[in-house]
Simulated assay, not measured.
Amino acid sequence: MSIYKQLQTSDEIMQTNTKHMICTKSSDAVMDSKLKTLRSYTHLEPDYTEEHEDPRDYCYGGYHPVQVGDVFNKRYKVLSKLGWGYFSTVWLCIDLRSGRHVAVKVLKSGAGFTQAGQDELTLLRCASGPTARNPLKDRIVQLLDEFKIAGVNGIHICLVLELLGPDLRCWQVCFGNPGLSLTCVKHVITQVLEGLAYLHSHCKIIHTDIKPENILLCVTPQSSSHPPGDATQTYSTAIKTTLLQDPEAPRNLDNITVKIADLGSSCWVYKHFCQEIQTRQYRSLEVLLGSEYGPPADIWSVACLAFELVTGDSLFEPKAGPNFSLEEGDLRRIAVLRPWGLYEVLVEKYHLLLREASVFSDFLLQMLDFLPERRATAAQCLKHPWLKL
């Protein structure tokens, strides 16, 4: 059975259980177990190959049917679809009060999804609430409003988020790998680390899913009106027209602004919602081994992200073999290990200059320490000379 089919099967089970729980209350322990199972499924596949969500998920406990032109909460008019995930659909809307474009995330209505939505809402309130006066909070996507929709498939939590541009993965698709200059990569990684320093120290939040898809560019289209068509294509075009055709493009590219998005999988430092976190390519050693994790797990992911942005390749790329699967690795089954140091890889394979490779490899290795307690913190990483080189 494919992983995607497993997701569908899980959703059908969840829908059945949701209907059953209307009549008979499940224990908190059972509900918590189901919620943790749902959360873990979101990390099994880093990228959905399907362009659209499964129509069968538009049922009781599932997605809310949305049409272009609908108005949410008598305020947010739907212009187009931004995307979808296992837990929700996301829509480009215009705020009829302010005229501002926003992103509205509409979660599934099943009990497990509702609880996950409540958890995400609490985390977003902490990260972007009026009491969050830390200047680094602007490195995190901001929650603007919240409401609920009572629809044919149940009651759905809706989150209104600031509208940002496409993610770093979209950038790679548009311009190829690696697609960013070293100066730009350093600028992006600095902002990601600033966002994590804020989440880890000020909010006591672990993001748990740092990857290119969750780092969004702050790009404003030249026209205030939103043309029809796919939102991703609109913003991809905006990148090209506002940056590549601009005579100041080199300077603009090196000073691009990004924000950390999607706290849907996040948790508190002192309260975890799921043991299996992170998308595979960015999953930390302690999580792979089933050990306790904390903020250092995010730092490991940043190291993987930095390597990928510089080289265009994944630092770690899980592959299925005859004796182990993508999800069930066992180091004892690897017969021969051929060591190739990170510095040597950067010089021999990616042809970085010796000085750059030396400082960059040192930067990465401090974030990839096998022992989480010895791994550099986000604040410490920000002081590393590679970011200033």
Rank of each mutant, 00 (worst) to 15 (best):
Q8T: 10
S10K: 11
E12A: 03
M14P: 01
M14C: 09
L38A: 08
E45D: 12
H52M: 03
E53K: 04
E53I: 01
P65A: 06
Q67C: 15
V71M: 02
G83I: 10
F87K: 00
F87I: 02
T89R: 13
V90P: 05
C93H: 01
D95W: 10
K108E: 07
G110F: 15
G110A: 14
A111P: 10
A111I: 15
E120R: 02
L124Y: 07
R125L: 11
R125C: 05
R139I: 01
R139Q: 14
I140R: 00
L143V: 05
K148F: 15
G151D: 03
G151N: 05
G154S: 02
G154P: 05
L164Q: 05
G165T: 09
D167G: 15
R169G: 02
V173I: 06
F175M: 04
G179W: 03
G179A: 00
L182I: 01
L182C: 02
T183K: 12
H187Q: 06
V188Y: 08
V188E: 07
T190L: 09
V192Q: 09
G195E: 07
S201W: 11
C203Q: 07
K204P: 05
I206L: 04
I210W: 13
K211S: 09
P212Y: 09
N214V: 04
C218L: 06
P227K: 06
A231K: 03
T232H: 07
T232I: 04
A238R: 14
D246W: 03
E248N: 08
D254V: 01
D254Q: 13
S266P: 11
Y270E: 12
H272P: 10
Q278G: 11
Q278V: 11
T279V: 09
R280V: 11
Y282Q: 00
R283M: 07
E286V: 08
L289C: 05
S291I: 02
V302I: 12
A306M: 06
K319Y: 02
I334E: 13
A335H: 11
E344V: 00
V345S: 07
V345M: 05
Y350F: 08
R355K: 10
V359H: 10
A378L: 00
K383E: 13
K388A: 09
